[in-house]
Computed example of a mutant assay.
Amino acid sequence: MSVAQTENLNIIAVDHMPSPLEIQSRVPLSERAAATVLKGRKALADILDRRDGRVFVVLGPCSIHDPVAGLDYARRLKTLADEVSDQLLLIMRVYFEKPRTSVGWKGFINDPYMDDSFRIDEGMEKARRFLLDVNEIGLPAGTEALDPIGPQYYGDLISWTAIGARTSESQTHREMSSGLSSPVGFKNATDGDLDVAINAILSASNPHSFLGISPKGETAILRTRGNRYGHIVLRGGGGRPNYDTVSVSLAEKALAKAGLPQNIVVDCSHANSWKNPELQPLVMKDVMHQIREGNRSIVGMMVESHLEAGNQPIPKDLAQLRYGCSVTDACVDWGTTETMIRNAAKVLREAPRKADMPA
């Protein structure tokens, strides 16, 4: 008597996915890229530990869909980064995965050709190659870790990692973050709740053991030591922004109560700008005012920025895509980006923050 099938009832195909080692062998880490990653991580750690008085800014397209335009942006950003490096550490926002409330394009790794072919195997290799190119320019990269397997493929090219508002509460992402080699920013929940992010920081700072994959692509038990560079990212929520002085003060108190360092990053986009990119400069201006007035807890900011302002739908004819314009959240353009960053650097030069160096 045959046993009835009880699994894979909704699986229509199981396609081969190259292992992390296979992808890394095709796109190997170079010495120059490795030096950029390590320098970026050390600078971030020094800022979080107050050994470096600068402020870091993670900025770039909402998502990468065109590597050519992405590298055009990266080269411009590298020039700007060098110009303001005395006051600001610029990290390029390189997002390949997009969380979806229901449906929509899930990002460059999931569907690199934007045609519903879902060539994840090719998307992962292309994503790694793009990260390698950015780091070889000398620009550190930051990304959102959405798929818990993804960092095995590209984590060696990441200087800063974000855990999004929808996943900060996920045990899987907290465990994964405990093993990441980069500092990790946890966003507050979409309803504005801070406890989710604070609990995530606490969880990720501790050792964990969990199921994952090895570099060879085999199922493995991963055991971590914990990541001590977790911090909170205020992105607004629950119908209101949370970058104002009162909200920042409440976040400081919540972090102190949990026994955590008062390290706060403000996302100038999302609910803090009411999803209106034109308001991002105003958010940054307010944050810089707080820093100028003596705030020490705000260590970083995030900005959604591209070559062209706004966003665009993905057309059936991809030749109709506008160059350098986001296909996900709307962004500020390059000219506005330069003004925002230069103004922020000017504020810091006028009221410099000294590192807490030991006597």
Rank of each mutant, 00 (worst) to 15 (best):
L90G: 04
T224C: 11
R174K: 15
L21C: 12
I213W: 00
K285N: 12
K346A: 13
I264Q: 06
M1Y: 05
A359I: 02
N343P: 00
F210L: 12
E278P: 01
G53M: 03
L21K: 14
G179N: 12
N199I: 02
P352R: 01
N311E: 06
I12P: 05
L307S: 05
K78S: 01
R296M: 14
E338Y: 01
A330G: 15
A204W: 08
D86T: 06
K126G: 09
P352G: 00
E97G: 09
E144S: 04
C62M: 10
D133L: 01
R75V: 03
L131C: 12
S2Y: 08
T336E: 13
M114C: 05
S269K: 14
P140V: 02
G150V: 14
S19I: 11
L211F: 04
A34H: 15
D147Y: 04
A204Q: 13
R129A: 15
P313L: 07
A162N: 15
G212Y: 07
G155F: 03
L131G: 11
D46N: 08
V266F: 03
K346Y: 01
T167S: 06
E144N: 06
N311V: 01
P207L: 04
S247W: 11
N199Q: 13
E169R: 04
A69G: 08
D15S: 14
M288L: 08
N272P: 14
G60V: 02
V134G: 03
I264N: 09
M301Q: 09
S214T: 10
V303T: 10
H16E: 15
R342P: 02
Q87K: 13
V103K: 11
P148S: 15
P315V: 07
D66A: 08
I120Q: 05
P261D: 06
L88G: 06
E22S: 00
D111N: 01
T161E: 10
D46S: 06
L9F: 07
E125Y: 01
P99R: 04
T219R: 13
N199L: 01
L77P: 08
R76K: 15
N276H: 11
E83F: 02
T328G: 12
I158V: 15
S177N: 12
E169H: 03
D49F: 02
I221T: 13
Q87P: 00
D15M: 05
Y153P: 08
L59P: 11
N263D: 14
T167C: 09
